[in-house]
Nucleic acid binder design. Structure first.
Lengths: 187, 187
DNA sequence: GTCTATAGCTTGATAGAC
DNA sequence: GTCTATCAAGCTATAGAC
């Protein structure tokens, strides 16, 4: 296999940056091509179904990163619950660039036509709830309370990203992440 | 003045519905025209600067509704703090159609190019924080604690809208609004 | 696997009749 | 104040050479 001009992981990261900032409709193939250094036609060689396939690949790529760095950390039986939570939150902080980067799921949930990403978004969010339910159980919460708290954590993360961006103050996101540790350790 | 085919308030409500669901880029002039029953050229008679002017008019229209139904309610000195809060939250529930309607500020914060709406979004969110800071003061909180809680309320509202939509469960939004009452009355 | 070139359509916006 | 007609530019996507 001859070397490609740009490797897929690097490409998907470039796509993600565009999609997060501009949304699905707001990102053009011209911009996607420019981000890779390739021409539009070359993108179609790698993603025959076009922009939609690129967006789905980006979503799956982010999901894989989250699985490795967030889910696997939160459920790592070799660590104490406190360590799992601390390390998981550190990864989340990195994922959203300390509150400076919007969430891809939010960006893709706004779109024209019937939303072909709805199922993927639903799956991803359920995944986040499962991960935090798991850490709640590690803190000896009941299943129902653990799930309730997990949903609140997701609300806090998503909401603080929105508000941080709206008020132009990433510290709101940082403070929210710090408070999440308290939510689990205060009881 | 001869009667117009469609009145401005009705028009702006139709625009708002489109913009909230599809975002700024995802909403076309063809759709905006169709929503009014007018032709594209007729829209330009009312909004000479085009789509951007329509979007800004929608934002101002929503802000006016919020000022009347949320801010004025939360700060109504003729009511007890409990009544103000209860009535204000009822209006918020209506604004977001019981969790079934996305927030316009979120929709407009995702967009291509430099975001011309950033300042308006920032102003609107600051407005929400001020309104809830005010109700916090009415519950005898200190200025700093009242503002802190106000930001958390905004996070809860915005976050629960995102998560309700993502998990396809508007009850998450409803529950969040109910909990906000507790946040203020439990201390 | 990347390119040039282009098809076919939709976009936001305007001119001018009524 | 609304319309028909139209524009130039941008869009997604494809054909085919190398």
């Amino acid at each position: 296999m001859r070397p490609q001009k740009i490797e897929e992981p690097e490409m998907l990261n470039g796509f993600a940056k565009l999609f997060r900032e501009k949304g699905y409709e707001g990102t053009s193939l011209a911009e996607l091509a420019e981000a890779t250094g390739l021409k539009k036609a070359s993108l179609y060689h790698r993603f025959p179904k076009g922009k939609e396939e690129m967006a789905k690949a980006v979503l799956l790529n982010v999901n894989n990163w989250v699985e490795e760095h967030v889910f696997n950390t939160l459920t790592n039986q070799l660590l104490t619950p406190e360590e799992r939570l601390k390390n998981g939150l550190r990864s989340i902080k990195k994922l959203y660039d300390d509150g400076n980067t919007p969430c891809l799921l939010q960006a893709f949930s706004i779109q024209s036509g019937i939303n072909v990403f709805n199922q993927l978004i639903n799956d991803s969010m359920s995944y986040w709830v499962d991960a935090f339910t798991n850490i709640g159980l590690a803190f000896d919460l009941s299943q129902s309370v653990a799930k309730e708290k997990a949903i609140q954590v997701l609300i806090d993360i998503q909401g603080s990203l929105v508000v941080s961006r709206g008020l132009n103050n990433p510290n709101i996101f940082i403070n929210t992440l710090n408070n999440i540790e308290v939510i689990y350790t205060k009881n």
